[in-house]
Measured scan of single mutants.
Amino acid sequence: TLFEALYDYEARTEDDLSFHKGEKFQILNSSEGDWWEARSLTTGETGYIPSIYLAPV
């Protein structure tokens, strides 16, 4: 399942991933609670993103 960003997000740590509204992600690991490891389909970068900023596509 792909997810789309509902809002912009600016990374706060080196493990976080910055993204823009409308960016799409492949989720790599969603077992860490509210922060999911994801790969951006726009940039190819991976990192942790807040799941509350996402909606399934």
Rank of each mutant, 00 (worst) to 15 (best):
L54A: 03
E32F: 12
L28S: 04
S31Y: 09
D34T: 10
D8C: 08
T13C: 15
Q26V: 15
E14V: 12
Y9P: 00
F25T: 00
A5P: 00
K21P: 03
P56H: 06
S30D: 13
F3L: 04
R12E: 11
P56G: 05
L6F: 04
I49S: 01
L17S: 02
E14Y: 09
T43W: 02
I52M: 13
R12W: 08
L6P: 01
G22L: 02
I52Y: 14
R12T: 13
I52G: 14
Y7F: 12
G47M: 06
I27N: 01
G33W: 10
E4P: 00
L54H: 01
K24D: 01
F19P: 00
T46W: 08
S30P: 09
E14G: 14
E23R: 00
T46H: 08
K21H: 06
H20F: 12
G22D: 03
H20K: 15
A5H: 00
G47Y: 05
L2I: 15
L28N: 04
S40L: 05
E14Q: 13
A38K: 00
P50C: 13
F19L: 07
S18M: 03
G33H: 12
G22E: 03
T43L: 01
A38H: 00
F25L: 05
Y48L: 12
Y7E: 10
A38I: 06
A11L: 02
T1H: 12
D34H: 09
L6M: 11
A38T: 02
V57L: 10
Q26D: 08
S30A: 13
Y53S: 10
L2Y: 11
D15G: 15
E10W: 09
A55H: 10
P50G: 07
K24P: 03
Y7V: 13
D16Y: 14
T13V: 08
S40F: 03
T42G: 07
L2C: 09
E32Y: 12
T1G: 12
R12H: 11
P56Y: 06
D8P: 07
D16C: 14
Y9G: 04
L28H: 04
G33E: 12
L2A: 05
E23C: 05
K24N: 06
Y9W: 08
W35G: 03
E10T: 13
A11G: 11
G44K: 05
A11Y: 03
V57A: 08
V57P: 04
V57C: 08
A11E: 03
P56D: 05
R39L: 10
W35V: 09
E45I: 10
F3W: 15
Q26A: 09
W36E: 01
N29M: 07
Y9C: 05
L17Q: 03
R39C: 08
I49D: 00
E45P: 00
T1E: 12
H20S: 14
I27Q: 01
L28C: 07
L28Q: 04
R39S: 05
F19V: 06
W35K: 11
D8G: 07
E45V: 10
P50W: 14
D16A: 15
L17G: 01
A55R: 11
